[in-house]
Every structure is written in structure tokens, then in C-alpha cells.
Amino acid sequence: MTSAENKPSGRIDVRYVAHLARMHLADDEIARLQPQLEQIVGYVRQLNELNVEGIEPTAHAIPVQNVFRADEVRECLDHDAAMKNAPLAREGQFIVPKIIE
């Protein structure tokens, strides 16, 4: 795996990016996505035409701040409800393949 950083701009290492996003894509999927993504990236690169120096980025659509919640207990999901959707469970826990540390 190489870092995305080392790639020349415009060309996307789809396999690497899909790996970052934890999607095992088949070769034909990658082959199909490659030109589409590059076309889209090519399109969005038109933003480079603009001078954005000194412009504040917008992360939120509304100018609001300091929205907090009081430190008060609310009802939890009951355990059975919490486990009901679990594809695999054991002893009240969600099961995943063995984690190697």
C-alpha cells in the first residue's frame, strides 16, 4: 500500500482509497470506477480557478455555537433491544472475527 500523498494529482489510486474506506472491490469494479471518478475529480478541479485566500471555510450552514446538553441521565436501550439487530451475538456481546493485537 502506498500513501495517497505520493500519487500524482488527477490520478486516483482507487484500490488504495477503497482500502481506506474498507471496501474490498473487485478488479472489474475498480476498472469501472476509475474513469468515472477521474472524470468527477477533473470536474471538481474547476474550483482551482477561484482565489480563496482569506476566505473562511464554512463547516456549518448556521451561525450557531455552544449548544450543550445538561449532564442528566436518560433511559438506555434495554439490552435485548440493543442486541436484537446484531447479526451475531454471544454472552450479551456483539461478535466479530477474532481481533489480533
Binding site: I95, V96, P97, K98, I99
Partner: peptide
């Protein structure tokens, strides 16, 4: 994470 013989369990 808790570990069983062939899998791991998660308590959130």
C-alpha cells in the same frame, strides 16, 4: 473487546 477462542466480543 473481549476474546473468545475463535472470535471477539464487543461491549459498548
Amino acid at each position: 473487546n473481549m476474546h473468545f477462542a475463535a472470535s471477539s466480543g464487543i461491549d459498548f
